[in-house]
Computed example of a mutant assay.
Amino acid sequence: MFIQPWDASLDEAEWRAWIAEGHDFGQLSVNGLPGRPPVVVPTHFTDGGNHLLIHLARPNPVWKAIEHDPNVIFSVIGDYAFIPGPWRAKPGIPATDGVPTSYYAAVQFTCHATIVDDPEAKAELLRRQLAHFQPDGDHAAVAVDQPPYGRMLSGIRGLRLEVTHVVAKFKYDDHKPVEHRTSVADRLADRGEGLDVPTARQQLRRLDRIGPWKP
């Protein structure tokens, strides 16, 4: 992922906070078997700090690829919006000469994948995921010898992704003047489509921390 200096995460705490805000769905990218394209799997995940936890159906074709090469990428993207050219036109030039762009936040984890097949280990993985996604505890106990999960464990495999490297990008025109960034955030809030509002929120959050861009 190409990252301009002004798009870089300001610190580790920034991208960790962004993930913790509810950005818990991404894409697992695995090198394909020889002569085959990469395998990409969309899935929820649980962040364990230095590792990510996911589970997938046993028939998923990703398993052979992981067994062949356990070095994988897990990518999370959010708070994105298309920014029309007229919004980015510099003062004194026709609005139609403005160049459009995309705003987004993205975190990419480089990981070493370990397949989890032991029934109790899979049950523990599911417990940790349910603790994240259903913190109220409104679900049956996950136990290898109790329904409903016990009989379903054989149909899934778990993955523990040990994080070896992280890159994060927050692309919100932080190199532009303060007035420009404020104006675009206002336009996003007014348009209010898709992820416009959270995108505006990210832009204003970065503006508050960075202020005028200093190379």
Rank of each mutant, 00 (worst) to 15 (best):
45 F>L: 15
45 F>I: 11
45 F>G: 14
45 F>A: 10
45 F>R: 09
46 T>G: 09
46 T>K: 13
46 T>E: 09
46 T>P: 06
46 T>L: 12
46 T>M: 10
47 D>S: 02
47 D>N: 06
47 D>V: 00
48 G>W: 09
48 G>H: 04
49 G>Y: 09
49 G>N: 07
49 G>D: 08
49 G>L: 05
50 N>R: 15
51 H>Q: 12
51 H>D: 08
51 H>P: 00
51 H>R: 13
51 H>K: 05
51 H>S: 13
52 L>S: 06
52 L>F: 03
52 L>D: 08
52 L>M: 08
53 L>G: 09
53 L>R: 05
53 L>Y: 07
53 L>S: 07
53 L>I: 01
54 I>H: 07
54 I>D: 04
54 I>F: 08
55 H>A: 13
56 L>R: 11
56 L>V: 15
56 L>E: 05
56 L>D: 02
56 L>T: 12
56 L>M: 07
56 L>F: 08
57 A>M: 13
58 R>T: 14
58 R>S: 10
58 R>C: 05
59 P>M: 07
59 P>H: 03
59 P>K: 06
59 P>N: 10
60 N>L: 01
60 N>E: 02
61 P>E: 01
61 P>G: 12
61 P>I: 11
61 P>N: 14
62 V>A: 07
62 V>R: 06
63 W>A: 08
63 W>P: 13
63 W>C: 05
63 W>H: 04
63 W>Q: 12
64 K>L: 06
64 K>V: 05
64 K>D: 14
65 A>C: 15
65 A>G: 03
65 A>E: 09
66 I>R: 03
66 I>D: 07
66 I>V: 11
67 E>D: 01
69 D>T: 02
69 D>F: 03
69 D>C: 13
69 D>L: 00
69 D>Q: 09
70 P>E: 03
70 P>Y: 05
70 P>L: 12
71 N>V: 14
71 N>M: 12
72 V>N: 02
72 V>G: 11
72 V>I: 10
72 V>K: 03
73 I>R: 15
73 I>K: 14
74 F>H: 02
74 F>C: 02
74 F>G: 02
74 F>M: 00
74 F>D: 02
74 F>L: 08
75 S>M: 10
75 S>E: 08
75 S>I: 07
75 S>H: 01
75 S>Y: 00
76 V>F: 00
76 V>P: 02
76 V>R: 04
76 V>D: 05
77 I>G: 04
77 I>R: 11
77 I>W: 11
77 I>T: 15
78 G>Y: 10
78 G>A: 14
78 G>M: 10
78 G>S: 14
78 G>I: 06
78 G>Q: 12
79 D>Q: 09
79 D>P: 06
79 D>T: 12
79 D>M: 12
80 Y>A: 15
80 Y>D: 15
80 Y>T: 13
80 Y>S: 15
80 Y>N: 14
81 A>Y: 07
81 A>E: 08
82 F>N: 14
83 I>Y: 06
84 P>M: 02
84 P>F: 00
85 G>V: 04
85 G>C: 07
85 G>E: 07
